[in-house]
Amino acid sequence: MELKIELTRQPKEKPADENKLSFGHIFTDHMFVMDWDKEHGWHDAKIVPFAPILMSPAATCLHYGQEVFEGMKAYRTESGEIRLFRPQENFRRMNESHDRICIPKFDEAFLLEALKKLIEIDADWVPHTYGTSLYIRPFTIGTEESLGAHSSTKYKFLIIMSPSGAYYEGGLAPVKIYVETKYVRATPGGTGFAKTGGNYAASLKAQDVAAEEGYSQVLWLDGVHRKYVEEVGAMNVFFVLGDEIVTPELDGSILSGITRKSAVEILRSWGYKVSERALDIQELVDAYHAGTLKEAFGTGTAAVISPIGELKYNDLVMEINHNEIGEISQRLYDELTGIQWGKVEDRFNWIVKVK
């Protein structure tokens, strides 16, 4: 497929102070757009100036949530090289989400090359300060003008990008987590493994409840038995139980995180025993009382590693590792961010260079 390019004639002013970058409020000069219909399939791929898109109020994505997205980052090293971290995995997962939400799949290799070209064009938007990055948001929406409850016959795929500040402005700090026992995010057979907006909308109520209790994130339990640990907020989760590192297995209701996958591979390469299995919340409680719950942390694109310092389950408040960053959490954070920013050898060949 041909990639058309239209450059802006009115480039925007870039942020003057990279230390004051927030998340998702400022956007680069250009975006990628591609359309699909039954007659042409995916077609009309182009890079154009960032601008609002024209869409009918009857578009299927607005009424039935037929939408999929991804989250990625581009990093600038000290030498000025711009790089991506395992982008093939993001596009592979996005196609899996497409399949679950009844959206046609795309050519992953073509999209990766289109993304690299988009970043090359907007390369000046990739921040220089360590810890900052260019956040990348690919997403697909159903655009058919119809109020019928069926999969769309038209789709639009876009990639927009936003320079973002460091996730931990004051340094890597443990967070407080609230175990949700009333609300359910997803169940096996549902859309929990897909990166679709409905999953996040379903999580907001519990997030608000947790915030009222003074907690920053929610730890979800499974929707069937209400006892097996699943995800924490928008991240996967790991627990160090004695000499074993446990993360919930991918049973169809948990997002297959790229950072999760990378963490598992790194930890195993270091010789740790990593188990992907069902984890009963009572097992965590028992480990806490026995003194074998040593560390807990979340993994995700935004935070990379988010140490957990406190876990509240019903009336029990469990302080983990004295509310301090654990040795494994810190080492894993240093390794992953080191690979991403070019400070640590990429021995897994995960990095894709843009320029």
Rank of each mutant, 00 (worst) to 15 (best):
I5W: 07
H25S: 15
F27W: 11
D29M: 09
G41I: 13
H43L: 13
H63P: 08
K73H: 03
R76A: 07
R83C: 06
P87D: 03
P87F: 04
R92M: 06
K105S: 14
D107A: 09
L111D: 03
L118H: 11
I119D: 03
D124M: 05
V126P: 08
P138G: 03
I141H: 04
K154N: 15
A173F: 04
Y178A: 00
V179M: 00
E180R: 04
R185E: 05
K195Q: 06
N199E: 15
A202D: 13
Y215N: 06
S216A: 08
Q217F: 00
V224K: 15
K227R: 13
E231T: 02
G233R: 02
V237Y: 07
V240H: 03
L241F: 12
L241N: 12
T247D: 11
G257H: 00
R260H: 13
V264K: 06
I266D: 02
S269F: 05
W270M: 09
L279Q: 09
Y288S: 14
K294Q: 14
A296V: 06
A303E: 00
G309V: 00
L311F: 06
V317P: 05
I320M: 09
I328N: 09
Q330M: 03
W341V: 01
K343E: 07
W350Q: 01
V352F: 07
K355E: 10
